[in-house]
Measured scan of single mutants.
Amino acid sequence: LSQDQINEYKECFSLYDKQQRGKIKATDLMVAMRCLGASPTPGEVQRHLQTHGIDGNGELDFSTFLTIMHMQIKQE
């Protein structure tokens, strides 16, 4: 990932990090990914979360979000 991409991801991540705690809700993951041009299915989002041990009510930090985005873009 280039620095530009990382900055773009950070900007989008921040939109969903409403309390500015450095985390977004798992329920916002799909929308955040789509905001960056990825098109994950609900099943793919579920798999990404399970891979990282996050349940549907959990939260993920930016580095986890980056990893998930990277995996998603590689497979699209």
Rank of each mutant, 00 (worst) to 15 (best):
K18W: 05
L15S: 13
D4H: 07
G22N: 09
S14T: 09
G43E: 15
M33A: 06
D28L: 04
T67N: 03
M33Y: 01
M69P: 01
L49Y: 07
D61A: 15
L36A: 11
I68C: 09
Q3S: 06
N57P: 15
R34A: 12
R34Q: 14
S39I: 08
E59C: 10
S63M: 09
V45I: 04
S39E: 13
L1M: 14
K10M: 12
E8K: 14
Q19D: 04
Y16N: 04
T27V: 10
E59I: 04
Q19C: 07
R21G: 08
G22F: 01
M69E: 01
L36T: 11
Q20H: 10
T41N: 02
G37V: 01
A26D: 05
L15G: 09
L1N: 15
Q5D: 09
L29K: 00
A38N: 03
S63D: 09
M71V: 15
Y16P: 01
N57V: 05
R34G: 14
Q20A: 07
Q5P: 04
I54M: 08
L60A: 03
D17L: 01
N7Q: 13
F13P: 00
M33R: 00
T27C: 09
S39C: 15
H70R: 14
M71T: 05
G22C: 03
G58P: 03
G43M: 07
I54T: 04
F62A: 04
C35L: 14
S39N: 15
E59H: 02
F65L: 04
S2H: 11
E44W: 15
A32M: 08
L29N: 00
L36W: 02
D61G: 10
F62M: 05
I6M: 14
E59M: 02
V31G: 14
F62R: 03
R21K: 13
S14N: 05
G37H: 11
F13A: 00
F13S: 00
A32V: 13
K23P: 00
L15W: 05
R21L: 08
T67S: 03
F65C: 02
G22L: 02
Q46S: 15
L60N: 00
C12I: 15
L60P: 00
K10T: 09
T27H: 07
A32L: 11
T51I: 07
D28H: 08
C35K: 14
N57G: 14
D61I: 02
K18F: 06
Q5K: 09
N7I: 14
Y9N: 02
Q20W: 03
Q5C: 09
Q20S: 11
E76D: 07
L15N: 15
H52R: 10
E59F: 02
D17T: 03
R21Y: 04
Y16C: 06
I24K: 00
F62E: 07
A32Y: 00
K18N: 06
Y16M: 08
E76F: 04
A32H: 01
F62C: 05
L1E: 06
E8V: 06
G53D: 06
L1H: 02
S63C: 11
L1Q: 04
K25L: 13
Y16V: 04
E59L: 14
S63G: 10
Q19S: 09
D28T: 05
L1T: 13
D28R: 05
Y9T: 09
C12Y: 12
V31M: 13
G22P: 00
M33C: 05
D4E: 06
M30A: 13
L36D: 02
K18P: 10
V31D: 15
V31Q: 11
A38T: 14
I6V: 08
L29I: 10
A26W: 04
K25Q: 11
C35Y: 12
F62S: 04
G43K: 13
L60V: 12
I6E: 11
D4L: 07
Q5H: 07
L49W: 05
S63A: 07
E8P: 06
N57D: 15
D4C: 03
E11T: 14
N7W: 05
N7C: 07
A26Q: 04
T41A: 03
L66W: 07
E76V: 12
G43R: 09
D61R: 06
L15R: 12
Q5Y: 07
E59A: 06
